[in-house]
């Protein structure tokens, strides 16, 4: 997404294969989604219906939101494993403050996301831990804390305003889908058009050089992890609202992997220095569609997981080509 402009300047295409190899990692994900939709249009009954597409979008929305935050973190050459636990933490916090109304409760849940992100950011940027280790701490500890807060129990929720976010439509589109779309646009703008976004990408691309150029490396890293935490908390709130219940033991399980998958499949390199926002959204969509397609064809969930594994391998393999250039 950030490099669309760079394609205009290249010299005449030398060989078609090299051309394809070059653009495949970037745009292969769009082609894959298109192919999958075409396949379903031809072979799956009732797939391309408004009702089904609605369901798919609603289901993918939380993944998209988490993956957007993850894309930013991965853009800095980091990773955030704690996102699933942050979702659980947000879910656990919600019922504790719903007595004050939906808005304060949501605000507290988001603050929990800020807190976790700040700890992650501090561990990475100030203490200097490797991101995978730093965020592993809250991956484990965050869910533990969520279970303590919730007494380890599933709680039914009855706050109408909160539940409405999960189930209502705005102009015929589910609210959660609109929120995810709005966030995608916002993140796209931040990455492309703000000093923060450009500094983030620069730091991911060459941290030493960024430091020497006087960039506020610590601040940018901290803010990035905080943004990721807030996004995960928001995803936790939305998922809880849809579920009509706070379920901190199950909510967000394996979400970190889904989010990383979406980011990688979408063409953002794990080595940092680039953030593909649209690719991330489409990457999440692709994984969702693969799963839905297989389930519609009566293949078990376990098969869907294996199919996902293959897609991840292909995405990583294709991205590898770019490095050797």
């Amino acid at each position: 997404m950030t490099d669309l402009a760079a394609t205009t300047s290249t010299a005449a295409p030398v060989a078609d294969r090299r051309h394809i190899a070059r653009y495949l990692p970037g745009y292969g994900v769009y082609a894959a989604v298109a192919a999958l939709l075409a396949f379903n249009a031809a072979f799956t009954d009732h797939f391309l219906t408004v009702g089904n597409l609605r369901t798919q979008l609603i289901q993918v929305a939380p993944v998209v939101i988490v993956a957007l935050g993850m894309a930013l973190v991965i853009g800095t050459e980091g990773v955030d494993l704690s996102v699933g636990s942050v979702m659980a933490l947000a879910a656990a916090v919600l019922p504790l403050y719903l007595g004050y109304g939906a808005v304060p409760a949501i605000a507290v849940a988001l603050v929990a996301g800020v807190a976790v992100g700040a700890v992650n950011g501090a561990l990475v940027a100030v203490v200097g831990l490797q991101p995978i280790v730093a965020t592993l701490a809250l991956f484990v500890g965050g869910r533990g804390l969520a279970l303590v807060l919730a007494d380890g129990q599933l709680k039914q929720l009855h706050n109408a305003a909160l539940l409405a976010i999960g189930s209502d439509d705005v102009l015929g589109v589910p609210a959660v889908v609109l929120i995810a779309a709005a966030l995608a646009v916002a993140v796209g703008f931040v990455v492309r058009g703000t000093t923060f976004g450009r500094q983030l990408v620069a730091i991911g691309g060459n941290r030493v050089a960024s430091q020497l150029a006087g960039l506020p490396v610590r601040r940018v890293l901290c803010c990035t992890y905080i943004a990721c935490g807030v996004f995960a908390a928001l995803a936790g709130v939305l998922a809880t609202a849809r579920l009509n219940a706070s379920d901190p033991s199950a909510l967000g399980n394996l979400m970190e992997l889904s989010a990383i998958t979406a980011v990688v499949v979408g063409g953002t390199p794990l080595s940092g220095g680039r953030v593909r926002v649209l690719g991330t959204v489409v990457g999440a969509l692709l994984m969702q569609l693969v799963r839905a397609t297989l389930i519609k064809h009566d293949l078990p969930d376990s098969t869907a997981q294996m199919a996902q594994a293959v897609i991840i391998l292909v995405a990583v393999y294709v991205a590898r080509e770019r490095k050797s250039r």
């Binding site: 402009a5 760079a6 058009g193 703000t194 000093t195 923060f196 450009r198 500094q199 990408v201 620069a202 691309g205 060459n206 030493v208 050089a209 960024s210 020497l212 150029a213 006087g214 960039l215 220095g273 680039r274």
Partner: peptide, 29 residues
Amino acid sequence: KAEGIIPELSVRENIVLAAMPRLSRVGVV
């Protein structure tokens, strides 16, 4: 290579890297 250029970014962005805050308004490039 190691301390200077940001290889993935364009010539433009490499030039303005350090001056970016001065070339922006309220954080918008």
